[in-house]
């Protein structure tokens, strides 16, 4: 992968508010994500984790506040340096290889270069034997691997993952986590939203705890898991119901 910690970082949310019908789904969130550590965002349901990821990726517009990428306001050119993987992979009604080719072609890749990158990412995802299979008949894990490969094939500097393994059976998870690890090792900034505390422990270099649209705790792993520095985060990590 050619990307390095570069132009799109740091990725910073400044005073982000999202208000719907008088309810603040994100409440003055300021967060700067720097090159290097894998940032894992955790928190109970409805905390605003996925919404924050969507704001970072330009898919949700904040009521107040701004997102900056590489020191400048988020704009289409900086969005192209990000890639996002959704909880439920959205695959085209085409073959596995055609899904990869579509993304590469949309970003201007053509001819031999396109075929080379397509073959490479089919292999990275362990899907080369399924290249001609319709993408929509793959298993959940295979579909998510294809979605990750499709995103990584575009060589993003930042990979945003919104609960990528939430709807998968446990056997499918290691392959997904391996892909995330490899992307990180190759220089891609990882921002992962997860409800799976085991996964957070395995993948996090730093943890951000979100509750009711606010960041209540943030710290480097693994220290965060033993002493998150906030009673609510402590309760959440202990498996208690957090209101």
């Amino acid at each position: 992968m050619s990307s390095a910690f570069g132009e799109a970082l740091p990725l910073a949310a400044r005073g982000i508010v999202i208000e719907v019908d008088g309810q603040r789904l994100l409440d003055s969130v300021s967060l700067e994500l720097r090159a290097g550590p894998r940032s894992v965002i955790i928190g109970p349901n409805g905390a605003g984790k996925s919404l924050l990821l969507r704001v970072f990726h330009g898919l949700a517009q904040p009521t107040e506040g701004e997102v900056h990428s590489g020191g400048r306001r988020l704009e289409p050119s900086s969005l192209r340096k990000q890639g996002m993987v959704f909880q439920h992979p959205v695959l085209l009604r085409r073959t596995v290889a055609a899904n990869l080719r579509f993304a590469l072609h949309a970003r201007g890749s053509r001819g031999k270069e396109l075929r080379r990158r397509c073959d490479r990412w089919l292999e990275e995802a362990g899907l080369e034997h399924l290249a001609t299979r319709p993408a929509r008949v793959l298993s959940g894990g295979e579909r998510q691997r294809l979605a990750i490969a499709r995103t990584l094939s575009l060589e993003p500097e930042i990979l945003l993952l919104d609960e990528p393994t939430a709807s998968l059976d446990p056997a499918s998870i290691p392959a997904i986590e391996r892909m995330i690890d490899e992307a990180h090792a190759a220089g891609t900034k990882i921002v992962l939203v997860t409800q799976d505390l085991g996964q957070a422990r395995r993948l996090a270099d730093e943890v951000i705890f979100l509750h009711r649209g606010r960041i209540e705790a943030r710290g480097p792993a693994p220290g965060f898991f033993s002493r998150p520095g906030c009673a609510r985060a402590e309760a959440f990590l202990a498996g208690d119901v957090v209101d």
Partner: peptide, 15 residues
């Protein structure tokens, strides 16, 4: 169904 994915991939209106 595809809007988020297409925006994420940076597709133009024509694409």
């Amino acid at each position: 169904e595809y809007d988020d994915q297409f925006r994420s991939l940076g597709l133009t209106r024509r694409q």
